[in-house]
Design a protein around this nucleic acid. Structure first.
Length: 577
DNA sequence: CTCCGAATAT
DNA sequence: CATATTCGGA
């Protein structure tokens, strides 16, 4: 059998009354990428084994135990659970070794134990399994080895070695030339297998991060949540470092684009005929977490052309300056989107379905704040080599990986804090009424992601010159501030459902199920439009061109991979010019 | 003492 | 470059 391949996550129980040895052995075994449990007493070891039946693959026990003779333990184990047991002792007295083997030990190690020996212990498990299979099949012919091997692996791939996927099966470099493997138990000279952050592993990482909350993440917590055997805190810490670096780089990109967007926005200020709807995502101030990347800024600019305002309900094809945009707007039918960009932080719409009575000269500024704690609810780093080159435009990790079907991002095991978005609008001009504002808000939200299911719980509106009166029965504006130029209004319980795509997939996207959303969402000081099941948070919005978002392709992450390269063909003004 | 994370090493 | 290790500080 291939001695260079070793199982990742072999579950080893080490029993030794000497804590020093226990520690050393644990360290060495971990370096073999085994999953190690230590135990100082034979009795306790038995209890553990009984309690967690089938949770171990092999036992390594010292012969000399204070509470129970090592051989007795061996007997018990052999009798009760038939696990391979390796005995060890500090001396190599032949009679003892013999006794051990006679009692059923599959190996006898002398302290100090060598790394090489530990590296090979999995073969005992392997052999034992092979024998079992042989017995079952009543076939002991040797040329059936491959079959046996297959069935062995088939049976135990997951349970025994706990590989997260077949790629994760680590192979040791062929150093079995009998040289470097001579290190002994000091364990320091042995290089641990490098952790490869496969997409799968990274996915787990991201899930963990999202569960914990970005502001609260620590390597330890992530490690615990990931529950990947063999992975160390250091591994996670290192990866977290890279991840943060990546995010901050992203954010820098965003800021640059926002600057550009602001400039563009400014240039539009003169066009009084347009209704400007601009929404900017920013980090919730109260949850400032010290991570620069946690603060994202998206500005969504929505311009409504007078001509289209006349017929707001129509999905009239727009005078799209770019044919591709027409395509986009076709997909996102109700949006009337003419152009959009997210990386640039600016979504621009030439027209939006708005209320008929909208005054063309109004200017509304919508500001959204995310309350996901600044967490990208779904954030992937991905390796460009897996994708098309053009992904690089979005950075090295810009593409979404496939959802891991084996580890479905289900509501049960994953909770992504639903981003809460507070929107504050300031309107210049003749808005009198929340109904003036509401459609625009909803459109803004929808435009951010049609798949988003959002509820406008409340919106704080700043009106530049007039008190707003709500016409909707369930809408109520209350003037907070008498300042004529800056009225602060609050609107509660609007409950406008903006569900455009109530597809079940949308639950999966965000890794959050609508139903599973906690009712006890923290009451943020500012009421907000709550994006349930958003699945895309600000970074994502920045991240993936809205062409993508608006096309509704976000329902399929697989497509995303393709699309992320293709999306370059759907330029939006701010991003790709 | 543990844990974190920036700096540094490989 | 990606990951590991170190090391000082909280």
């Amino acid at each position: 059998m291939d001695a260079t391949a070793f199982p990742y996550g072999l579950r080893v129980l080490v029993v030794d009354d000497d804590p020093t040895w226990l520690k050393i052995l644990e360290k060495m075994l971990r370096k073999c990428s085994y999953e190690v449990t230590t135990c100082g007493l034979a009795r306790v070891a038995l209890d553990i084994l009984r309690e967690r039946k089938n949770k171990f693959d092999i036992v390594i026990s010292d012969v000399n135990m204070p509470d129970m003779d090592g051989f007795k333990l061996l007997e018990h184990i052999g009798l009760e659970m038939d696990l391979p047991v390796i005995m060890m002792s500090i001396d190599g007295e032949t009679s003892r070794v013999m006794k051990g083997v006679q009692h059923g030990a599959c190996d006898y190690l002398l302290k100090p134990v060598r790394m090489k020996e530990l590296r090979n212990i999995w073969q005992h498990v392997y052999r034992k399994k092979m024998h079992e299979v042989k017995e079952i099949e009543g076939n002991d012919s040797c040329d059936d080895l491959q079959i046996l091997r297959n069935s062995f692996e088939g049976l135990d791939e997951k349970s025994l070695f706990m590989r997260s996927d077949s790629d994760t099966m680590r192979k040791r470099k062929d150093m079995d030339k009998d040289h470097a493997d001579q290190e002994s138990s000091d364990g320091n000279t042995v290089k641990k297998a490098r952790v490869v952050w496969s997409v799968d592993l990274h996915q787990k990482f991201v899930n963990a991060v999202n569960q914990i909350g970005f502001d609260k993440v620590g390597p330890k917590k992530i490690l615990d949540l990931m529950n990947v055997p063999g992975l160390t805190r250091e591994n996670v810490a290192s990866h977290l470092q890279k991840y943060r670096l990546y995010l901050s780089r992203l954010q820098k990109q965003n800021e640059e684009r926002i600057l550009g967007a602001a400039r563009q926005d400014f240039s539009h200020k003169g066009t009084s005929e347009n209704l400007n709807l601009r929404s900017s995502f920013q980090e919730q101030p109260n949850i400032g977490n010290g991570y620069p990347h946690a603060s994202q800024n998206i500005q969504t600019q929505t311009k409504m052309l007078d001509s289209q305002l006349e017929d707001t309900k129509s999905t009239l094809p727009l005078p799209a300056p770019d044919k591709k945009r027409t395509l986009v707007s076709d997909v996102a039918d109700s949006q009337n989107v003419t152009s959009a960009s997210s990386l640039g932080g600016v979504l621009s719409f030439k027209s939006l379905p708005v209320n008929q009575d909208r005054k063309p000269s109004e200017t509304m500024i919508l500001e959204c704040q995310t309350w996901s704690g600044g967490i990208p609810s779904k954030q992937f780093m991905q390796y460009p080599k897996h994708n098309h080159e053009r992904c690089d435009l979005l950075g090295d990790y810009s593409c979404l990986p496939k959802p891991d079907l084996e580890h479905p991002v289900g509501p049960s095991n994953l909770y992504t804090p639903p981003p809460l978005i507070s929107m504050s609008c300031s309107m210049e001009g003749g808005a009198r009424d929340f109904s003036d504002v509401k459609p625009a808000i909803m459109d803004c939200i929808k435009s951010l992601s049609p798949a988003m299911r959002c509820t406008v719980d409340s919106v704080s509106v700043q009106l530049s010159d007039s008190v707003v009166t709500s016409t909707d029965g369930d809408l109520k504006f209350s003037s907070v501030d008498g300042s004529p130029s800056n009225k602060d209004c609050c609107l509660d319980q609007t409950n406008s459902q903006g569900t455009l795509r109530p597809s079940p997939e949308s639950s999966i996207i965000g890794g959050t199920e609508l139903a599973s959303l906690p009712d006890d969402l923290p009451n943020y000081p500012l009421h907000g439009v709550s994006f349930e099941n958003i699945g895309l948070s600000s970074i994502d919005l920045l991240h993936y061109s809205d062409a993508m978002i608006l096309s509704g392709l976000q329902n399929n992450w697989y497509d995303e991979l393709e699309f992320s390269s293709d999306m370059m063909d759907y330029p939006s003004i701010d991003l790709f010019v």
